[in-house]
Design a binder for these strands. Structure first.
Lengths: 248, 248
DNA sequence: CGAGGTTTTGAACCTAGTCAAGGGGCGTGG
DNA sequence: CCACGCCCCTTGACTAGGTTCAAAACCTCG
């Protein structure tokens, strides 16, 4: 039995930090009440495995806070990250009883879980949930496809620059100041996790980080704290279209 | 204006070859009638571009027959395939007015199109469509993630073997004889398209095809016709788990 | 038969991987 | 307080897998 060490938490949906971005975003008050009855919280510490691929999984969940990764592995141990789970992201698939991927907590995380069967039943008569889940899944599919371009066609340097701009952009959107050229943030990932994200080795990640630093594209304070003096320069290094690939 | 040369076709939903697998799979007769009113057919010849990324797109569609590809490109021309569209697959995204990817017909194709606005409206009050679309999108997301593992972590030889087993398996499922060890099929893709799928150059694809042939994993009659004498051997070469990665 | 597109093959090159050693920060325990 | 071990990261030297550039074979279609 996993999850033995999950701590118990209680939270009112109305006060939930991801209330307006998670699967429940479109739910009305009465629908929230129904969800409230089947939900429970679980927390995991940084480094813990939330679920192993192939495990029985009788819940689905939203990430409330913290960061987790979705990874896939080949028998010989080669591993590829296939998803990065941020607050409000959804874990699990309605209608599927076994996990398809490993879910690993990168930082301490809190998850809002729903027992799978009741959740599936509720989806049947609550279009608001299915609608929101569809929207979220379509967004994830777009992100996965962007990522495929990165994995298949970008150079190591471009891959690193792309990852940094993604993290920077996400950070900016949280702090609500996307316009500034100068950006500072903490990398939530180890070099190894970055390598698994980008389809590289950790040595290559390290070398390219050093190269970007040497070339003045980024500044490092410690291993994880990054300053980007010129965001446009970084985006250029990432090799994307100048607009960052946004489509409305 | 593109699509000038699209041929007109007429088809009754009841007789449609993708009736039970496309977005409309779960629709009742009355819902089909409503769809029938907003649908129209378009056909494209092999090699034609159906849509350019960024183009205005005022329809969504199902592939009825033939094969198309979804590709993304960097400014310098590097291109990565991010989706392979087979009969019953869905094109376009409700709620989005501009295409995110290039859609290119690989063979002659026939598409069943729905004007976007009416389709979106219909989705609102027809849960059967949204439900089916969610299911299809989740499947696509799984496929994309499997693909990410391939792009990020597999060797050229494993990539080729993986692609061949995917095509072989799909072929078997259409012909309903998955149990046979020996399989024969036509590759629907050029070497260049294979390369774009796998994140390789066409030269590498060609070399690895030759190597697999030399090693007796596959037999070639012409460039495109493939015979796999031992499917298990091919799956082994693909580097996946022995079960092919199926999860129920 | 010739033209154009597709594929194969060869040789040189280069990017990223592999293997190995060492640095730096941090917590624990003497 | 310092020493030690541990983990994470960096750097170096070498290797290998895949790309690039180039040429030629193959196919199909007019």
């Amino acid at each position: 039995m996993p999850h033995d060490d999950a701590k118990l938490v209680s939270l009112n949906c109305g006060d939930c930090p991801i209330r307006h971005r998670a699967v429940c975003a479109r739910c009305e008050t009465d629908e929230l009440e129904e969800l409230e009855r089947i939900k429970y919280y679980r927390s995991f510490e940084a480094g813990q495995t939330v679920i192993w691929a192939g495990d029985q999984m009788d819940f689905v969940a939203s990430v409330v806070s913290g960061i987790a990764t979705l990874t896939q592995t080949l028998e010989d141990g080669r591993t590829q990250m296939v998803g990065l789970l941020l607050p409000s992201d959804f874990v699990g698939r309605p209608g599927r009883s076994r996990a398809a991927y490993n879910v690993i907590a990168t930082t301490d995380i809190l998850m809002c879980c729903f027992r799978r069967k009741p959740f599936e039943d509720m989806m049947e008569h609550t279009p608001h949930i299915a609608q929101r889940l569809l929207q979220m899944t379509l967004d994830e599919l777009d992100a996965a496809r962007e990522w495929m371009l990165l994995l298949g066609r970008k150079t190591a340097r471009e891959k690193i620059a792309s990852l940094l701009s993604i993290v920077a952009r996400r950070n900016a959107s949280i702090q609500m100041r996307a316009s500034e050229r100068d950006m500072t943030f903490d990398l939530p990932l180890t070099r190894e996790a970055m390598a698994d994200y980008l389809g590289l080795t950790l040595e290559t990640v390290s070398r390219q980080m050093s190269a970007l630093k040497r070339d003045g594209v980024i500044e490092l304070q410690g291993k994880r704290h990054v300053r980007v003096p010129d965001m446009d320069r970084l985006l250029l290094e990432a090799g994307d279209d100048s607009d960052g690939g946004f489509i409305i």
